[in-house]
Design a protein around this nucleic acid. Structure first.
Length: 566
RNA sequence: CGGGGUAUAGCUCAGUCUGGUAGAGCGUUGCGUUUGGGACGCAAAAGUCGGGGGUUCGAAUCCCUCUGCCCCGACCA
């Protein structure tokens, strides 16, 4: 590509409300332009990168045996009524009507459509397993779109759906997809981790997220330094630090804590560490309130709490009024000692192995010291309620957990029969009986990958593309082309042609910018390799090469350059 | 949905408090000088000051209202 024939539109300034590096750099590089909240135009430059990602995803899906298709983005309400998700999906579903007032939505995902396709197309177990995929625009009416294309309302996604007769077959395809994802993110040149993910309300046997590691990531992930264990923080299991509580050594004593309500205030006031305190959260249970007890320095994990049998499927903190009505105490002074019998007490594993601890006194302005389970407070049962923290033992017993931030770019999921059952998608098995199919689904946020890559790889000057994602691998920069000798322009043109003939994607910067502006642009848009052609270099018979992350330029012969790029 | 902020040239923003002919930088166009890290000079084009209503002799500025956008929170996977 000759840059003089392209539309490169870099800018120096960027709106103050572009918060994260990838959003700022994509705007500055002119890759995207905002049309409305969460809606972005991909410029020619941005599209080149997006297509690089898309093509790698497509190649690896094809290699893994998935079959590409394309489904409509507009979907009829009736199909969504069949699975009950027209209502359940809520405000994220963009609903529209046609001229006959019939209702449709812009697809946020395609389980309904693909399962409808499958129930019409697949009749026999001999057609299974089969894995359909598409790369297509999705729309989710996010409450708060942000960070440019990182969390946009309209975005490009690869979604694949596999159909099986048995769970074993699903597990096989799941493993193949998992490996395909590993290949994709490896080829893209990203630092990532596959982590166990919560399967949520859908159930199923397995789910993994692929997280690109970046400090600005919205997800927290835990991983072991002694094994390959890695999980989303909402999923990571917290093991108790001790097998059992030590024997009680201190007497139970009520102490006045007139204005100390938070754990940190109480701990400081009583001169104990937060680890020696028990905090008690009251949440709405199936039948009245439920008490959840945690060690003072630990955080509740709402996903784990929501799964407790005593809770209605979600964890919602009780209001101050509800607490006052049930306990006669304001929040801040609640504790397991002397709590009304009607309130079940569920204790986190680590809180359960404390002895002589501090807890709320169930009276305004008072706490207990020297409290002990059994002697002073009842334990309904012990459960894993908390988020793991840096330094926790890995749940597989090997190594210690560390916490990192990640950006979710892929998610594989063993769906089971939820959708096939709702839509009655079945095939005839070898005994002639109809069997509901078992499904898996596998998503990749194609447009999000572009932002995630920048988030992971950038510097002061701009984007640092992995080679596989760069809009061009090499930039040939001509110094002062309008006034340089014919030889310089000819040499640049010849080099550009030679690189192209070797299959190396090259951009020729023949715009005639001053060198500073030209270099700044090539660095901003993240071209991995830069070669300068000038009178100076021509006289010396060498090319001036500089890698995107190199501190300085160096001289290469043309042959050395080709070898380096081979 | 609750709270906060914001809307002025293509872009980034001053100007609003204290009402009196619309500003800067970047970008764009033309001319000239320049040409190895975002050059310089001169000239020019470019604005229903988000929409509507009100107060006033007079509103970008004060008041009411609507809308868009951004941030925090709640929500959601």
């Amino acid at each position: 590509m000759r840059l003089s024939q392209f539309h490169l539109a870099t800018v120096k300034e960027v709106p103050a409300d572009a918060e994260i590096a990838s959003h700022r750099l994509m705007l500055r590089a002119g890759m995207i332009r905002r049309l409305a909240s969460g809606l972005y135009t991909w410029s020619p430059l941005g599209l080149r990168v997006l297509r690089k990602v898309e093509n790698i995803v497509r190649e690896e899906m094809d290699r893994a045996g998935a079959i590409e298709m394309l489904m409509p983005s507009i979907q009829p309400r009736e199909l969504w009524d069949e699975t009950g998700r027209w209502e359940k999906f809520g405000g994220q579903l963009l609903k529209i009507k046609d001229r006959k007032q019939q209702e449709f939505c812009y697809g946020p995902t395609h389980e309904e459509v693909v399962t409808d396709f499958a129930r019409n197309e697949l009749k026999s177990y001999k057609q299974l397993p089969v894995n359909f995929y598409q790369i297509q625009t999705k729309f989710r009416d996010e409450i708060r779109p942000r960070f440019g294309v990182m969390r946009a309302r309209e975005f490009l996604m690869k979604d694949a759906y596999s159909f099986h007769l048995t769970q074993e077959s699903l597990a096989e395809t799941y493993a193949v997809m998992y490996q395909a994802y590993v290949r994709i993110f490896t080829r893209l040149g990203l630092t990532f981790r596959a982590v166990q993910a919560d399967t949520g309300a859908i159930g199923g046997n397995a789910s993994h997220e692929f997280q690109v590691l970046a400090d600005s990531g919205e997800d927290a992930i835990a991983f072991s330094d002694g094994s390959d264990y890695a999980a989303n923080l909402e999923k990571a299991e917290a093991r108790a630090t001790a097998a059992a509580a030590p024997a009680p050594a201190a007497p139970l004593q009520r102490v006045d804590t007139p204005r100390q309500r938070t754990i940190s205030e109480v701990a400081e006031f009583l001169q104990v560490s937060p680890q020696q305190c028990v905090k008690t959260l009251l949440v709405r249970g199936n039948d009245g309130l439920v008490a959840l007890c945690l060690r003072g320095d630990h955080e509740i994990n709402e996903v784990k709490a929501g799964k407790l049998a005593e809770l209605p499927g979600e964890s919602v903190l009780a209001s101050e009024e509800e607490i006052l009505a049930a306990c006669g105490t304001r929040p801040g002074f609640i504790g397991p000692v002397g709590l009304p019998d009607a309130i079940p007490v569920i204790v986190d594993r680590d809180a359960a192995v404390l002895a002589d601890f501090v807890c709320g006194g169930n009276a305004n302005g008072s706490h207990y010291t020297g409290a002990n389970w059994g002697r002073d407070a009842r334990i309904g049962r012990v459960a894993d309620l908390r988020n793991v923290v840096e330094g926790d033992l890995s749940p597989d017993g090997k190594g210690v957990l560390h916490i990192a931030r990640g950006i979710e770019v892929g998610h594989v999921f063993q769906l089971g029969q939820k959708y096939a059952e709702a839509l009655n998608a079945s095939v005839i098995d070898d005994s002639g009986k109809a069997q509901v199919m078992t499904m898996g689904c596998y998503g990749i946020g194609v447009s999000r990958i572009v932002a995630a890559a920048i988030e992971q790889r950038h510097d002061e000057a701009g984007i640092i593309w992995p080679e596989a994602m760069a809009p061009w691998r090499v930039a040939v920069c001509v110094i002062n082309p309008k006034n340089a000798s014919a030889a310089v322009n000819e040499a640049a043109e010849a080099l550009y042609q030679a690189l192209g003939q070797r299959g190396i994607e090259t951009v020729l910067d023949d715009r005639g910018l001053r060198p500073g502006g030209m270099f700044a642009d090539m660095e901003l848009i993240g071209i991995p390799h830069r070669v300068v052609v000038s009178e100076r270099g021509l006289a010396a018979g060498t090319l001036e090469y500089r890698g995107r992350t190199d501190a300085e330029s160096r001289s290469l012969t043309e042959q050395e350059l080709f070898a380096l790029l081979a």
